[in-house]
């Protein structure tokens, strides 16, 4: 269904409220296969909420999100979006990796078991095959020496690298990163960003909510600024960081740069 010209992700007029608080006020965004898009902006601007809508961890109130041409969480039938069952949403989520701010590794499983869990339980892979893949992925994120450790025995940066490997094990079409370095001690941020740079270089499609402006400038194909539930500015990072057009982007960048 996807070809290189059509966007992998297309969000159209996405609205989301929590009670009376409107968090997303009509978001439109397109992400092409292989692109790295960084969502930037102050806390409370709706970046994380939008990211969580992309794999239906949050239900949207209005609008549509297509991933690979299929509406996420719904089935389009004769001009109506029908909500689909949770188990069918699960099938969609299996193709979208997500990395969380607080890592969320399964605390009762080792690093290796965290990585094999999805392939064995969801993809029904042969445990031996899943293990081989997991070993390869843990080597890729530099965590093979800690394969038998439990999450509590690992540093934040190590946990996050395992979490990235866990997502990759599902062979996702798209990776979502929700502030992946915000909960880390400053000296551990680099190791996680290095892994993410490698992923971007390998052509993974990534949407990254981050405060790491340096990373965005260096790696992103597109930088998107969100304030108060709307996208105020988006474009080539070099261009946007050098000459922000919108007043709020200027203010934000003057604080973080």
């Amino acid at each position: 269904m996807s070809d290189i010209t059509s966007p992998l992700v297309r969000a159209i007029n996405v609205h989301k409220s929590f009670g009376r608080l409107e968090v997303l006020k009509g978001i439109n965004l397109e992400v092409k296969t292989g692109q790295v898009v960084c969502l930037l902006g102050p806390s409370g601007g709706g970046k994380s909420t939008f990211l969580r809508c992309l794999n239906h961890l949050e239900k949207i109130d209005r609008g549509t999100i297509f991933v690979d041409g299929v509406p996420v969480g719904y089935r389009l039938h004769q001009d109506k979006f029908y909500e689909i069952r949770e188990r069918d949403v699960a099938l969609q989520r299996a193709q979208i990796g997500m990395v969380f701010q607080r890592f969320n590794l399964f605390s009762n499983r080792t690093a290796l078991e965290n990585v094999t869990e999805g392939p064995i339980q969801v993809l029904k892979q042969d445990p031996k095959v899943a293990r081989d893949t997991a070993v390869r992925l843990l080597e890729r994120v530099g965590m093979m020496d800690w394969a038998d450790r439990y999450p509590a025995q690992l540093s934040g940066g190590q946990q996050q690298r395992v979490a990235i490997a866990r997502s990759l094990a599902m062979n996702p079409k798209l990776m979502l990163f929700d502030e992946p370095t915000s909960a880390l001690d400053p000296e551990l941020v680099g190791e996680v960003l290095t892994v993410m740079r490698g992923l971007a270089a390998d052509g993974m499609t990534m949407i990254v909510v981050t405060h790491e402006v340096g990373f965005a400038r260096e790696v992103a194909d597109k930088a998107v600024f969100m304030f108060d539930g709307v996208i105020v500015e988006e474009g080539d990072p070099a261009e946007v960081f050098a000459n922000p057009r919108h007043e709020r982007t200027q203010q934000f960048l003057s604080k973080v740069l």
């Binding site: 961890l57 699960a90 099938l91 969609q92 969380f100 339980q121 969801v122």
Partner: peptide, 10 residues
């Protein structure tokens, strides 16, 4: 949420 994100059913 992590379980959901790797495609686990409830």
């Amino acid at each position: 949420e992590a379980a959901a994100s790797i495609g686990m059913r409830p």
